[in-house]
């Protein structure tokens, strides 16, 4: 029960932060990516601001090892896979969609109740894309194993 409450609060704080920061405003996001046009640097402040508390949290996690509500904490020093083909292709494709609509997954959900028809259609299309990803990944791996 406490896990759910904490997750609800974290999600709510994330949503509020996305509102305050302007990440739900597609013109600001598109302005950030529009380096050949009227460039808007706001997102650099959003990302910079978000990294600070999280960098501290990773250091706290390194010392605690165990989450407050139990269970092992992911650690910043634990090994990870090397960046591979799927990471690069996937991120580039994601960036393309991010530019076209000015929405990434978090802000898309945050604006679900006030983004109108376009916002709802975006979330449905995004879910469809997520369902299409595993077969596409399998096909990429058949062409050339990652």
């Amino acid at each position: 029960m406490l896990r759910l409450l904490s997750a609800l609060v974290a999600g709510g704080l994330f949503g509020a932060g996305l509102l305050v920061s302007g990440m739900v405003d597609t013109t600001k996001v598109q302005g950030w990516l529009d380096v050949f046009g009227d460039w808007n640097p706001t997102l650099a402040f959003v990302l910079g601001g978000a990294i600070v508390p999280m960098a501290i949290a990773w250091r706290v996690a390194e010392r605690r090892k165990v989450a407050v509500l139990g269970g092992p904490l992911p650690l910043m020093t634990e090994g990870e896979a090397r960046p591979g083909r799927n990471l690069i292709i996937g991120s580039t494709v994601f960036g393309a969609g991010w530019a076209l609509a000015g929405l990434c997954p978090g802000p898309a959900l945050a604006s679900l109740t006030f983004g109108g028809t376009g916002g709802i259609v975006f979330v449905v299309a995004m879910a469809a894309g997520m369902l299409a990803a595993p077969p596409i990944r399998a096909r990429l791996d058949r062409m050339q194993p990652a």
């Binding site: 292709i89 609509a101 997954p105």
Partner: peptide, 11 residues
């Protein structure tokens, strides 16, 4: 855009 974001982020 939604399709690209969905596929890309999962890949």
């Amino acid at each position: 855009a939604g399709l690209l974001v969905g596929v890309g982020t999962r890949l």
